[in-house]
Write a protein that binds this DNA or RNA. Structure first.
Lengths: 203, 203, 203, 203
DNA sequence: GATGAATGAGTATTCATTCAT
DNA sequence: CATGAATGAATACTCATTCAT
């Protein structure tokens, strides 16, 4: 019955907070934000409804925090903070990393796709400053790739249009992402095959 | 003061029904099914809440009918009922038609994407037989393209893998669709550029 | 296309009015007043909802008129307006008539029982004066029977209590009515048997 | 400020649940199921509408539970589980008990009568299995009395028909029940008088 | 910190009644 | 006289959030 130290308390809180967020992510991603109820999350997380509000001010804040954490998680994995120049090898590495992440963190990406499609959900996020902060790396990555394709154009000659190529690369990656995240039947062989093909075509 | 003729009534109903469905489509597509309220739809359609239920048994039936109508609309535009063989020219035509439709009937595609992503909404549709009927053309189209790429493989030689090519074609089209439907800033030039590029690469 | 005479019009109206009331009776009796909707009645009567309001001001008025008509119908069949004295033969006749009517006009009695049990429905009727008028014969009949049993007491000697006898007679008749009206399985033989028994015991 | 113990919560729930059921019984019995609104019940029970749904899934479940509880209550009071043979004394006791209960638990019987008369309400109950279980004692009681009157016939001689007698006994009891439950003016003297008479005539 | 009973504003749905034709 | 589209108030039910313990 010895009282917990402040540090133990903090860790306990952090764990419970993570548990709630994990549970919420699962349901927001699969059923959608509006369809998912707080009761449902609480029950599946094995806690009381009241406790949820001890960790998050509202359902919307829960979503915000969740997105924020997810963005950070993806961002950390990507780690694009090199010298600002993408080598061919780094390009290939990036594609492999991103596609791998699409499988590993499928639920997060489901959430991201959902959010992209729902005005209402977007509004919730816009009222949350930290999200903007988290998303600052997007222009950075965009520049990185834009530069990459421009450099490639210099090597490839006249009928290579870097803008078109980058555009094709992005939509192909997007389409692959969509397929990976929302189809239950994408086997290992086809996955590798597609990744290699994308790299081969666009690197 | 004789009452309206049955024909007048029928036309009145058909018009009002279409008005409700159009309004619902707009809101389901932009805000999502669960976020959209019947009140909201009624207000924007300029009718009373009660009237909605004179035309549709429930919110879910409204969605069902909406999807059914949308599928039929897309299907009619596609008109894939030729001889069962896709020529190079027809392939190009198909791509142009589909991508054009993505812009013209953007709202319908928004709805389709939303539905693909939400388990709950899918369940609603599974309880609707006519939907299955409407979707019967999907395997047909798939076979059409599968054959197309196999035939192409015979011309192209050994290192052309028809399965990979078809897969790349599909994810590219999907990615393009996603981009067209959900981004507000895709100009005419980039659109044409991308369509031409897809045709050039995959035909 | 010759125009109808005023008399024909009146008859047509009367017929339609009766049709609506018959249909309403059926549903009020079986499903209850509050459960029965105007739409339902209209559909089963083969007319439009609007027309109903051409014949009756409201659902409540429809009930009132229905009860009024039913009371009159029962009343006419009973025809108790003799000399004010019930002979033994008339007593027997009365029991036979009433029990016969319970079978023939079962639906009406279902309605009456329902009304007896629902405060709300009673209130609707209380606001309808004509009902009170229609029910004026109840005290009359009561007196008739009260006198009958008192006269019988004079013949029967000391341990015959006319009040008790009348009370037993009434509850027996009530119980028989309840059974006849609400049970689907009361065969001819048991019916006759019971009627004869009631007459034998109480006359 | 530690939370309530599970036991405290259980007791709280049980009390509140009973309060809601008691209030509902009163209104269902007097106004009828369909006329009674949840708002009304909530207001009279001094709780919010929402809370009702914390205890009962729907209005229909509330009715089901109410009937179930009522049947159990009546059943427990009757306690017919003896040796399977009804003595004359036990017959008298049964009549006294049942009639006493009709006065004490008048509201419950009002509900039972209502339900007997409304098809719709019956359907609600048929979907409730436990109700069937609760009603299993009815055939048992029926047999008990059937045997009683058959045994009596052996003592009484040829012109005593046990079937007729039992039938008369049942309709008399039913009629008495109906009168007791739905008339506000049945005094103590008349009650005792009738009970004694029924016993005297049929035992 | 933790619980779950309680609230009340909001949502889908129903239905008596009206009204233009 | 007859129709059925249209209304709106009422009803069953849900759910994010609060709060006493």
């Amino acid at each position: 019955m010895s009282p917990r130290t402040p540090k133990q308390y903090r860790e306990l809180r952090e764990e419970k907070r993570a548990l709630i967020m994990d549970t919420a992510l699962l349901h927001f991603a699969n059923e959608g934000f509006h369809k998912t109820t707080i009761s449902h999350i609480a029950k599946h997380a094995g806690i009381s409804k009241g406790l949820m509000y001890n960790y998050f001010k509202s359902k919307e804040e829960l979503l915000s925090e969740l997105v924020s954490r997810s963005v950070r998680e993806i961002y950390n994995d990507l780690d694009p903070d090199r010298d600002g120049i993408l080598s061919t090898q780094e390009f290939e590495l990036f594609v492999r990393k991103v596609t791998e992440m699409l499988r590993e963190k499928r639920t997060i990406w489901m959430l991201f796709f959902q959010m992209m499609m729902q005005n209402e959900v977007q509004k919730i996020l816009e009222e949350n400053l930290s999200f903007d902060d988290d998303m600052k790396f997007i222009p950075h990555v965009t520049t990185l790739f834009s530069d990459y394709f421009k450099r490639k154009a210099q090597k490839m000659g006249n009928d290579y249009n870097p803008e078109t190529e980058m555009n094709m690369f992005i939509i192909t990656l997007k389409g692959f992402a969509l397929t990976l995240v929302f189809s239950d039947t994408f086997d290992e062989r086809l996955f590798n095959n597609t990744v290699n093909n994308i790299i081969q075509v666009y690197k």
